[in-house]
């Protein structure tokens, strides 16, 4: 099998890089949502104690 031309490889790299960025951003967003949830839980627990 002949090696792929460099331009094809660059496009492949570019495609995967976009997918990767999407994954990381998705997880970051999830982390942010978790922190919001944590704050809500803190509030609820405090109000229940009273």
């Amino acid at each position: 099998m002949a090696p792929l031309p460099l331009s094809t490889l660059k496009w492949l790299f570019f495609g995967y890089a976009v997918i990767w960025a999407g994954i990381v951003l998705f997880l970051m967003n999830m982390g942010r949502r978790q922190e919001r949830l944590e704050r809500q839980l803190d509030d609820l627990e405090r109000s229940l104690k009273r």
């Binding site: 090696p3 660059k10 995967y16 990381v24 997880l27």
Partner: peptide
């Protein structure tokens, strides 16, 4: 970590797809 992961991932993808040469017998596979 996400701020670390973003450049790390892109760098290793670049290394794997562009910088690393194709293997002698298996080529790009």
């Amino acid at each position: 970590f996400p701020w670390l992961l973003l450049p790390m991932g892109i760098t290793s993808l670049y290394l794997a797809f562009v910088v690393a040469p194709p293997e002698a017998t298996m080529a790009d596979r």
